[in-house]
């Protein structure tokens, strides 16, 4: 069970959280102005990186807040968690050994 650092409540067990998909995919300001392909990309285009992944979590059974996290998908280590609206922090990419 992961230990996730909620930006409001601190480190809490994964049980209290719900995963909420990839982060930093903003809803287009004017969807009607988008072509079908661009809209399709917004709806369905998601990264699936091996390594650092920016993703959303919600501290559902806690403060209820959605927030963003950087998690290394190869070993589940969180490099950072940060509030909605904050810039994606710069963190060291996982070392080569873990990418192998």
């Amino acid at each position: 069970m992961l230990l996730i650092d909620c930006p409001f409540c601190g480190k809490r067990p994964e049980l209290e959280f719900r995963y909420a998909g990839e982060a930093h995919i903003a809803r287009p300001a004017d969807p009607s102005g988008l072509g079908d392909e661009a809209w399709g990309r917004f709806l369905y285009g998601r990264g699936n990186p091996r390594g650092m992944h920016a993703e959303r979590w919600r501290h559902l059974n806690g403060c209820g807040r959605f927030f963003n996290a950087l998690r290394d998908t190869t070993d589940d280590r969180f490099a950072a968690t940060y509030k909605i609206g904050e810039e994606r922090p710069m963190v060291a990419e996982p070392q080569g050994a873990r990418k192998a």
Partner: peptide
């Protein structure tokens, strides 16, 4: 409720 909170907290804060 989750769907509504999501939009209120992230897109339309």
């Amino acid at each position: 409720l989750n769907h509504m909170e999501d939009f209120l907290q992230t897109e339309w804060s």
